[in-house]
Amino acid sequence: MEQNTVKQTDHFLEVVFSYTRWFFLLAACTVYFLNEWQGQLEGHLPFIYLVGFGLLYMGVTQYCLHKCNRESRFYKWMTKGGVIFDLVAYPWLIAVTGGFESPFVPIGYLIVLHAILYWRYMGGVLGAAAVTAGFTGVLAAQGFTFSGTAMMTFMMNTAILFLFAVLGGVIISRERKHYAERVVYEQMAKRDYLTGLYNHRTFQEHLLSFTSGHEPFYLVMGDIDHFKSINDTYGHLTGDRVLKKIGESLKDTNFDGHAYRYGGEEFALIVRTSSEEAVHKLIMQISRDVERRNRPFLPNFKVTLSYGCAPGLNVEPEVLIKQADDKLYKAKARGKNQVAGLGKEPAAYQLVRGKK
């Protein structure tokens, strides 16, 4: 969850940087044509090449930001590569728009900020060094004289740029650290510490949200069969291990909905579907996976669950829980390792075959 939120923020900032580049490209063209455009076309080829280079990269980046999978390698190359593009284009832009007097000198601060976004403190310092080196190289190539007031201005701007890089890196690093800690605390309040599933409190919140909506869903309550026997025979550490394995199975199973540890040895699923068949297939998949995961350390004991299901459309949360619980008790009474609440189940239908 934390990683997804950070990635969404980074994506938004990349979109901002992308549109900022378009703005500065338009501004650079305007400044150049107003102040520099004169003489033969050949004399303006460096600026034309710069504009072409910028249009190509920025066009591809724009497509990538809006069309590509954010987990793809191409997306990561294009976004992080934006810092490299900026570092290459910056001295080029300065060189063709007035050198020391260029109105685009402050863009260096944005480049440093972009580097800080991905590489924190070190990215800011290296970005500042690269911006300064590029700017200095342009001035040296143009025969700029580093003396007097100009030298003082240059040194002051350089010092402020590095200070900006250091402070920006520290601030961003601290902000990300505090955000990560906050997310951890939020997750601790929402999830069960042993299984990693959503806890009872989160279940109640989600169930209220689902029952208040207009989307069909099923509530599935599951309870481990003979769990007391596992604790009494193999010990409570083994019982905890069984709970963890069931949590792993529920987290790894792909379905449209959420899984919860309701309490003790009881679990709950909220499944977005109106299909009894889909719910039955999901329960069969989970049951077989749970038995498979626990088999290596309980070879003589088949770990199974019994399930009670109830459709959740236009039902109050308390009523829905009772309906699913009643079906669960029915499955237990029929011999366990069964599901109740999905149409006409056989009286002794077992989800997982074999000996206990």
Results as ranks from 00 to 15, higher is better:
N4H: 15
Q8L: 13
F12W: 14
F17M: 08
S18L: 15
S18R: 07
L25N: 08
L26W: 06
A27W: 05
A27N: 03
F33M: 12
E36K: 13
L41W: 07
E42K: 13
I48C: 09
T61I: 07
T61F: 12
L65M: 14
H66R: 08
H66Y: 06
S72D: 04
W77H: 09
A89L: 05
P91S: 01
W92Q: 08
L93E: 01
G99I: 00
G99D: 02
E101S: 15
F104E: 02
L110A: 15
L110K: 06
R120G: 00
Y121N: 12
M122R: 12
L126C: 03
G127L: 05
A130T: 02
V131S: 07
G134R: 10
G137M: 12
L139E: 08
T149P: 01
F154Q: 02
M156Y: 08
N157Q: 11
L161R: 08
L163I: 03
F164D: 00
I172V: 14
Y179S: 10
V184Y: 12
V184F: 15
E186T: 10
E186D: 05
R191S: 09
D192Q: 10
Y193D: 04
T195P: 05
N199T: 00
T202L: 14
T202E: 12
F203P: 00
E205F: 12
H206G: 00
L207R: 06
S209N: 14
T211L: 15
S212G: 15
S212H: 11
G213S: 14
G213K: 08
H214I: 09
F217Y: 13
Y218E: 01
L219H: 05
G222D: 03
F227A: 07
S229L: 11
T238M: 15
D240G: 06
R241G: 02
K244Y: 03
K244Q: 10
F255G: 00
G263P: 02
A278Y: 05
H280D: 15
Q285C: 10
I286H: 01
R288I: 11
V290W: 06
P299S: 10
A310E: 00
V315D: 03
E318P: 00
Q323R: 13
D325G: 03
D326E: 15
Y329M: 06
K330C: 09
A331D: 02
G335I: 01
N337R: 08
Q338G: 01
E345C: 12
A347N: 07
L351Q: 04
